[in-house]
């Protein structure tokens, strides 16, 4: 419990900044929504000038772009990228922190097992990701209600927003998995930016349609917002794939971290 609280505390400020930043993206875009509704026809014709691939990549669907849910699904690609960066950062940094800050000789000679260190660290980071999602959802929900011009399906809004948490879980687990292979991970952000944008672009370039197997490559493709809006649910194949990725990478992280040699700093 002491380790969990310590880790929680060390993430506090960063979580607040990330949650506010992610929320700010949604708020800024939502603030444009009333204007877009007013000039709906112009906006649609502007978007129809974009290549179809770009529209698909950004989650834009011309039919419902001027409804709040349609508009939200466009905003959400940016929210998802930002959230994925946060989660990858947390994943990469939490288990590599002792090597980076050279505090391994402090924490790892305490009378606790390595596995319990991993558990405390992962739980603390997951708690903070959950807090980020709660803050984000409340903020986004309030903003959507302020700018809405007609009523919308709140359940769908929630289902779309919840994919932020799923994506974050996957990227967090990937980050943790990557980090245990490093002897000393000096800076986290370049790697997380690489992983997130790499997978995002890979997904956007390779995936051509809803039935494309290439969708498995990029977690960003696991949650097709169009599908969620039409079916009020998630695609179970991809939910299971996501869950498997999380389970396997977290289990591997435990095993590797416990077996690791912790070398003297220099």
């Amino acid at each position: 419990m002491n380790m969990y609280l310590h880790e929680l505390k060390s993430l506090g400020k960063s979580t607040l900044i990330w949650a506010c930043s992610i929320l700010a993206i949604a708020v800024i875009y939502f603030s444009l929504y009333p204007g877009i509704v007013k000039d709906a026809a112009d906006f649609k014709s502007l978007l129809s000038g974009y290549p179809a691939e770009i529209r698909a990549m950004l989650g834009i669907s011309l039919d419902n772009i001027t409804t709040i849910l349609g508009y939200y699904s466009m905003i959400f690609s940016f929210v998802a990228i930002c959230g994925a960066i946060q989660a990858t950062n947390y994943g990469l940094s939490t288990l590599s922190k002792e090597a980076r800050e050279r505090t391994a000789d402090f924490l790892l000679v305490k009378p606790v097992s390595r596995a319990s260190i991993v558990t405390s660290k992962l739980l603390a980071a997951l708690t903070m990701l959950l807090a980020t999602n709660v803050l984000y959802f409340i903020g986004a929900f309030v903003t959507a209600n302020l700018v809405k011009t007609s009523d919308y399906n709140v359940k769908l809004f929630f289902l779309v927003s919840l994919t932020l948490l799923f994506l974050q879980l996957i990227f967090f687990a990937l980050g943790a998995f990557i980090s245990v292979f490093f002897k000393k991970l000096k800076s986290v952000l370049p790697i997380s930016l690489g992983v997130v944008f790499g997978l995002y672009i890979l997904g956007a370039v390779l995936v051509t349609g809803e039935d494309d197997v290439a969708r498995f490559i990029s977690p960003f493709q696991y949650f097709n917002i169009g599908y969620i809006l039409n079916n009020a649910g998630y695609e179970s194949t991809y939910m299971i794939t996501g869950a498997l990725i999380v389970a396997v990478t977290i289990a591997a992280s435990y095993i590797i971290y416990v077996k690791k040699d912790i070398h003297a700093v220099n």
Partner: peptide, 18 residues
């Protein structure tokens, strides 16, 4: 790991959470 409860360790170079 609990045997380390009775161990005090001073490394040659010390680093703590800044």
């Amino acid at each position: 790991p609990e045997v380390r409860r009775e161990v005090g360790y001073l490394p040659s170079e010390v680093f703590y959470y800044d």
